[in-house]
Simulated assay, not measured.
Amino acid sequence: MTLFTQESGFVRIDVEGERLDAAVAPTLKAELEKNLPPRPEKVLVDISGVRFLDSTGLGVLVSLLKMMDSGGMLAIAGAQPVVQRLFKLTGMDRVFRLFDTDVEAMAALAGDASAAN
């Protein structure tokens, strides 16, 4: 299950569950397509509970990026060390903006340059 909330100026997506893999990725992608407003400009994805991410899960995050406004910002918060390693190994740490906490991600979405990684 994924929680979608509208914060001040951005959409927040809290990914619940310890795995974001081939078993759950299709459901998450369908939830994104159903619940996201058209072409959102700013999105925060909190994956702090995710302990395992595979290429299919990464693919869903890439799909989310493609659903966004062309000048939009996607901030990913709370990636665990093992998940961060996958982002680095695949080079996706250069595609996505990763933040240790949701507070840092929210500051970046609000335009606070000191919060950016």
Rank of each mutant, 00 (worst) to 15 (best):
41 E>V: 13
59 G>Q: 13
70 S>Q: 10
71 G>P: 05
32 L>T: 05
52 F>C: 14
77 A>K: 00
30 A>V: 13
57 G>V: 08
45 V>R: 00
28 L>K: 02
66 K>C: 07
78 G>M: 07
61 L>R: 08
54 D>E: 14
41 E>S: 15
25 A>E: 02
57 G>A: 05
54 D>R: 15
39 R>G: 08
22 A>E: 14
31 E>N: 08
59 G>I: 10
66 K>Q: 13
24 V>G: 05
27 T>V: 08
80 Q>G: 02
60 V>Q: 02
57 G>W: 05
74 L>W: 02
50 V>G: 05
51 R>C: 11
74 L>E: 02
45 V>W: 02
62 V>Y: 06
40 P>G: 01
25 A>D: 04
36 L>C: 07
24 V>Q: 12
55 S>N: 12
28 L>F: 13
52 F>V: 15
27 T>L: 15
24 V>S: 14
29 K>P: 02
35 N>K: 10
64 L>D: 00
75 A>H: 02
29 K>G: 03
43 V>W: 03
42 K>I: 04
37 P>N: 07
75 A>R: 02
63 S>E: 09
74 L>G: 05
34 K>D: 00
28 L>P: 01
26 P>N: 14
26 P>I: 13
64 L>V: 00
34 K>Y: 01
44 L>K: 11
72 G>R: 06
75 A>F: 02
65 L>S: 05
34 K>M: 07
58 L>A: 07
53 L>S: 08
62 V>E: 10
46 D>P: 04
77 A>F: 05
49 G>H: 10
51 R>N: 14
41 E>N: 13
65 L>H: 02
33 E>M: 06
47 I>S: 04
74 L>R: 01
65 L>C: 04
71 G>V: 05
33 E>K: 10
75 A>T: 07
32 L>C: 01
75 A>W: 03
74 L>T: 04
66 K>W: 07
60 V>M: 08
30 A>P: 12
75 A>M: 04
81 P>H: 08
67 M>F: 06
57 G>H: 09
68 M>G: 07
53 L>M: 14
80 Q>I: 07
35 N>G: 03
44 L>T: 01
30 A>D: 15
50 V>P: 09
61 L>E: 04
32 L>S: 00
78 G>H: 06
